[in-house]
Design a protein around this nucleic acid. Structure first.
Lengths: 107, 107
DNA sequence: TTTTCATATCAAAATCGGTTCATGTCAATG
DNA sequence: CATTGACATGAACCGATTTTGATATGAAAA
């Protein structure tokens, strides 16, 4: 990961969401902004691990973080959230659409 | 990977396409059925490696294989290909839609 | 300004996934 | 039936990701 990075391919972008916890986080954030702690409770994951995943999501430009007192508020990045039938995520190279259902811990 | 496998999660399904060669293959097959050899030329990849990737795609139910003489013809599985604006892939848990563009070696 | 809460970062360990190379299978051909 | 062509399979290798545990940072509270 050097300073001068080549633009990520479509498969690279998909990799970011091709991870259980990260996908859950993004789908939860599609419902609305949430604090890291809230995400931690909703997705059942260790604090440190969640933080790592959030970093990956931030680096990918999928979510943004904002200080809120001693907490941090996360939200889906502006251009990523799409209004379609149900939820949809715009990866730039492609769009993935979910049916209007829960973002629950996917089995 | 035992005989009694739990159903793959949405992130598991996304993992299958979150790989450059595999995504290329599927997008090429969306254009129409192709022999393994043809895929091998189009996607630039070693024979063995392509075969491994094709196996992953088959196991995921994304493509089907059919003997054609000494060759093997691959096609996108029936319910996976979706007619939307542009190409679209139905993963069951979600749909990913591409704009009507090339399936070329994605950069 | 020390302490505590909420989160991020770092380094090491564990796990996973793609790649390679050697070999096996199946169909057509001689 | 030995040979060749087209693919598939298996094992080992290796790098990348995930996970963990310890520690650092930044903001509020005491």
């Amino acid at each position: 990961m050097a300073t001068t990075e080549t633009q990520p391919s479509c498969s690279d972008r998909l990799k970011v969401l091709a991870e259980d916890k990260r996908l859950q986080v993004v789908r939860l954030l599609l419902e609305g902004p949430k604090h890291a702690g809230e995400l931690q409770r909703l997705v059942e994951v260790e604090q440190s691990l969640l933080s790592h995943h959030l970093r990956v999501l931030r680096d990918a430009g999928l979510v943004t973080a904002e200080r809120d007192g001693k907490a941090v508020l996360y939200r889906v990045a502006p251009d990523v959230s799409i209004r379609q039938a149900g939820e949809a995520i715009n990866l730039g190279c492609c769009v993935l659409a979910f049916e209007a259902s829960s973002a629950k811990t996917g089995g």
